[in-house]
Write a protein that binds this DNA or RNA. Structure first.
Lengths: 186, 186
DNA sequence: ACCTGAACACCGTTCAAGT
DNA sequence: ACCTGAACACCGTTCAAGT
């Protein structure tokens, strides 16, 4: 029989509970102390598993991007792929409370992860005929637009006013389509 | 002779000093207590002039948008206006430390101000032939793209990696041009 | 009208010490 | 290896009291 290591506490558990806390209390309520309490542990215990709070936020942001990526199906051409990815990211960002603000703050967990992430996202685009430069530039444009839109959309009083004048999701969609359509082919 | 009211402390002074503090210490260093100290006053004194910290951040964000607006010159058509405004906003956001993160967090000072702001920005676009709906939608698209891009650009490790592969300002410019070009005319 | 002093209820993080 | 207890240096905000 193998000696099962007591799992005690896991980085995955921490991130999962952090999302629950975020849903319940919002970004301002997301403190290390409250997070620890939910995990039935004292606050300093978290620092054995994690360097600091920024790292927790970074892992959460990485999860949100990863979910968007995995929801993006195969596509016939790079424009279709970018449109799908943009919609998936928008969905991923809005399906967590304060998701956009979190991603605007949270740095990626590590430089190496950032590079890996960029590579993973660029891959399907290069497979569809773009060169590396364009794959990165176009991906950056779509992420920027989507992140910015969702941030804007979450911005309280402005939103309440604008909602009377337009359908947010529809306007986002047509904006995204416009952007992708305008991107140069090669 | 008129009785001159002692100016004591002004909302404008508070915002101006808040920008100095932001430049010096970054967004995490921007606390009400430090801000008060710079103004040679105790922290609670600020709360006579201001409701809370969020209001200070909101006024700062409003200043950044206003600067972008006032830097945008007259234009021949709405596409040219939007391109100019996007570049001006990008400049305005990057010319303050943590400017993008600040605008991603800061709500506008009040709902009424948000409406006024939206109106002011939509005005030059309707003057150039767009209807109200499109003026708002296109403006929202450009702001979103610019805010998102600048946020992305400020995101530490990711930036250091991407900088080797592309010129940030140039890629922003062509992305903005692509977006504006793709926006429907009527 | 405008500001201070003191206090309340929190933070993130470190570090010795426990097991 | 993993966690607790106690502490440090902060926060934003309220409120009585001063002038």
């Amino acid at each position: 029989m193998v000696q099962h290591p007591m799992p005690s506490l896991t980085r995955d558990q921490i991130v999962a509970e952090a999302f629950n806390l975020l849903e319940a209390e919002g970004l301002e309520g997301l403190s290390m102390r409250r997070l620890a309490a939910r995990l039935k542990v004292q606050a300093p215990a978290l620092y054995w598993h994690v360097n600091d709070k920024a790292e927790v936020l970074g892992m959460m942001a990485a999860d949100i991007y990863a979910a968007a990526y995995s929801r993006t199906g195969p596509a016939q051409d790079w424009r279709e792929w970018l449109r799908q990815f943009g919609r998936a990211l928008h969905l991923s960002l809005t399906s967590h409370r304060d998701g956009a603000r979190l991603c605007a703050i949270g740095r990626p967990p590590s430089p190496t992860d950032a590079i890996a992430q960029a590579g993973r996202i660029a891959a399907p685009l290069t497979a569809l005929g773009l060169n590396d430069q364009q794959a990165l530039a176009h991906q950056a444009a779509v992420i920027s637009f989507t992140l910015g839109w969702t941030t804007f959309e979450a911005n309280g009083p402005m939103r309440d006013f604008l909602r009377q004048m337009m359908d947010f999701d529809a306007t986002f969609s047509t904006g995204l389509d416009s952007l992708v359509k305008g991107l140069p082919d090669k």
